[in-house]
Amino acid sequence: MFEYIVSKFNYWAYICLMMIGLYAMIVKGNLVKKLIGMNIFQVSIILFYVSVGAKSGGATVPILTAEDIHHAHAHVLANPLQYMNPLPHVLMLTAIVVGIATTGVALAIIIMIYNRYKTLEEDEILVIRKESGV
């Protein structure tokens, strides 16, 4: 049992992080806090993907060594066990950018909300909107 938990600790870590993010997104009343929750949520998924790319047994970053470049010129294939899986890293580069873009747009929306209601607390905004008769 203990071994099972340890062998997958990265997944447990990302699940915990994700739950923290989701909790903040749902429960917090302040819009910026909700946004921070959203960021934690996105980062947890990025961590999950990146951890999938890991290989034990001496694998290193996926940049070919001078030796392997030399081999490649001689048409000798590199050993995949020596390098980590590059694909999750590529995917997460894209996902990070997407996350940042979403955060940017969300912050712009928050600025609009603040200009309109002069507050970022959800319940206060609800009160203001009720008073204005909508």
Partner: peptide, 13 residues
């Protein structure tokens, strides 16, 4: 803006 923010949160989830 509030509608859009709600959409951002739920859409991102």
């Amino acid at each position: 803006p509030m509608a859009a923010f709600k959409y951002v949160i739920m859409g991102t989830v």
